[in-house]
Design a protein around this nucleic acid. Structure first.
Length: 600
RNA sequence: GCCCUCGUAGCUCAGUUGGCAGAGCACGCCCUUGGUAAGGGCGAGGUCAUGGGUUCAAGUCCCAUCGAGGGCUCCA
């Protein structure tokens, strides 16, 4: 919807036109270049080229400069609708364009190779010396691109048509705006985003660590990060207990047989660490917990009376993500999942599925997460038997069930093809990292492959065997991705209940060290995470340190406080509350913790 | 995995055309006893990611490996 609007906007035309101007500039410098596609995207545009030689960041400046020259020429963008034959002649030495023309002519494929509903006309856009196969739209003249409101941002590799079996092209990203101020604002926003990047804050706040000798994608949790993970785990246990879950524990390793039965080895093998072999038996570290939970469900005959059965575990899983896919805490190779599997009868499905959605909503409200999209991830016919379990009837049936449940529950969602799990459709909750990369945070999945593979069943009211449905869910994602996200969401300033250090006691002179130690130990007794800064620094420096570590409460103690047995409070936001009793302060802290409140 | 870029002290970064490895912060010791975001002095800290190569001489140039970053592909 919003996309349609963008495609009709002036900004879209400016960016699209800037892409053409950039392509012209690149061709001016490197005439042998083969050019492919160059669409507008969020915040800008890109163009993919096959260049005769790699280019560098300095080349971008050169290209930018040339672009400004072209812009100042005031060249008009002229559209012509032409025949396929004419197009082939114009682009005779541009193989990628020829492939695009063929797609347009034959199947009616768009520039990404996806089928189009209607066979499109073939059009070209021309300005100055540059002609591109293009459906538009563009601005009328190059002069409508503000030469001070665009910037070439980066060089990247990109596969032709997004297929890793194809050739790697060189992509140049640019950003373009109507006015120079908007560009300035956008660049400033990027700088701000970098400051809240969880990789930077994670280091500064001593939350986690990657060590070369441990390995890529294998985070070490520092004491501060462990506090956060533990608090999330407490939250999950509390909420899941209320929602009727039972906790289980399962090993990290399993024999090959289990993953053959589960279908992971046929469908998921490339994301699994290779097996270790002992006494002729292969063992795998688990990429998911489900097969073991299925075993627990299947451990004895089940009656409809005990359904739904909800088995929960913060399970540790290992997935071999390709090296280039790793991304701080957001994409790692070892992870602890807020996992659970719900086994239910078909008529219980909607209630159970929506129960999970309710859980999400509660969590998101608690964290104040507002920018997210629920995505119904569907299978793709072409992937059946390869990426997806080969049973189209059940795919369509379960996709309908999920769609209906969401519609009945009045929960907004979007539908996307070819994003399902191999065993069924799912609702993914999509979020964005500080630098704008999209991730699936939480997920709620249907599994219809379970019954076939694990022979799971329960005895129904009529005394007959019936196959349960299984819901896989992880509302709190994995510790890694959740904490990575929360670091950015809070910009490191965690609410009191999550803050690794909740209170720092700061004596004004070392004459108050004893009093400070006493106050700290009383707070600690009361279950508050507190430290006392008894070092030789001046109070100002100590406050600065505490501020930088984003400690929610600083208790500042001078001679006055010690004498009248009170405390003075400085909060992370800079506000103060002086000369209150320790009891009053403690009540405040305990209240924030107990309510998991966001305010200080 | 692929394309491009980058690896200098715990952290952030300087380091000229190849010519004796530097700063600030953090750390240790000393002085300072200061009322809400950095008081001062001294000191310690480096196989310049790792391994090869070119050169009289390599942090600097070349190759490989490992790791990180921006993308692509893939995903919680």
């Amino acid at each position: 919807m919003a996309e349609e609007k963008y495609a009709e906007s002036k900004l879209y035309r400016i960016r699209h036109s800037a892409a053409h101007v950039m392509a012209q500039a690149v061709l001016d410098f490197y005439p042998e270049t083969q050019y492919t596609i160059g669409p507008p995207v969020e915040n800008g545009f890109y163009y993919d080229f096959e260049l005769p030689a790699p280019i560098t960041a300095e080349d971008l400046e050169k290209i930018e400069k040339r672009m400004r020259q072209i812009i100042s020429g005031g060249h008009l963008f002229e559209k012509k609708v032409i025949s396929g034959e004419a197009a082939r002649q114009i682009f005779a030495n541009q193989p990628y364009k020829l492939e695009l023309i063929e797609g347009l002519e034959k199947g009616g494929l768009d520039e990404y190779g996806n089928p189009l509903d209607v066979k499109p006309e073939i059009s070209i856009y021309q300005h100055d010396t540059f002609t591109d196969l293009c459906r538009g739209p563009h601005v009328e003249s190059t002069r409508q691109i503000n030469p001070s409101a665009f910037k070439l941002m980066s060089i990247a590799g990109a596969y032709w048509r997004g297929d890793e079996n194809n050739k790697m092209l060189t992509r140049i990203y640019g950003t373009a705006w109507e006015k120079p101020d908007e560009l300035k604002q956008y660049l400033a926003m990027l700088e701000e985003a970098k400051k809240r990047d969880h990789r930077k804050l994670g280091k500064e706040l001593d939350i986690f660590l990657f060590d070369d000798e441990v390995g890529p994608g294998l985070p070490l949790w520092m004491p501060n990060g462990t506090v956060i993970a533990d608090e999330l785990e407490n939250l999950a246990k509390e909420m899941e207990e209320k929602a009727g879950y039972q906790r289980v524990r399962t090993p990290h390793l399993t024999k090959e047989d289990l993953f053959i039965r589960s279908g992971h080895l046929p469908y998921y093998a490339e994301s699994m660490y290779p097996p270790m072999e002992l006494e002729g038996v292969k063992y795998y570290v688990k990429p998911m917990n489900c097969p073991m939970h299925h075993k627990i469900f299947g451990a004895r005959p089940r009656s409809y009376r005990e359904l739904p059965i909800r088995l929960a575990e913060y399970g540790t899983c290992y997935r071999y993500e390709k090296s280039g896919e790793l991304f701080g805490l957001m994409r790692v190779r070892s992870m602890q999942m807020n996992d659970a599997h719900i086994y239910c009868a078909e008529e219980q499905f909607e209630q159970e599925f929506m129960g999970v959605i309710d859980l999400y909503k509660k969590y998101f409200e608690l964290f104040g997460i507002e920018k997210f999209v629920m995505r119904l991830s569907l299978h793709a016919k072409a992937g059946l038997g390869k990426k997806y379990v080969d049973n189209e009837r059940l795919w369509i049936k379960t996709e309908d069930m999920v769609r209906r449940a969401m519609l009945n529950g009045g929960v907004p969602f979007v539908e996307v093809q070819n994003e399902a799990a191999f065993y069924g459709p799912k609702i993914d909750v999509q979020i964005w990292s500080a630098i704008g990369r999209e991730f699936t945070l939480a997920t709620n999945q249907v599994d219809f492959a379970v019954p076939e593979r694990f022979d799971l069943k329960f005895v129904n009211r009529e005394g007959a065997d019936e196959i349960p449905l299984c819901i896989h869910r992880a509302p709190l994602s994995t510790h890694e991705r959740m904490i990575g996200f929360l670091i950015e969401h809070y910009a490191g300033a965690f609410p009191v209940w999550l803050a690794p250090e909740q209170v720092r006691v700061i004596p004004i002179t070392d004459g108050q060290n004893d009093y400070a130690a006493k106050i700290a130990s009383q707070l600690r007794e009361a279950g508050v995470r507190v430290s006392a800064d008894l070092g030789a620094e001046r109070m100002n420096a100590k406050i600065r340190q505490a501020q930088l570590m984003k400690v929610p409460y600083m208790v500042v103690l001078g001679a006055n406080e010690a004498e009248s047995d009170v405390v003075s409070l400085r909060m992370r936001d800079g506000s103060q509350l002086n000369n209150i009793s320790l009891a009053e302060f403690m009540a405040r802290v305990k209240d924030r913790i107990d309510r998991r409140a966001s305010e200080l």
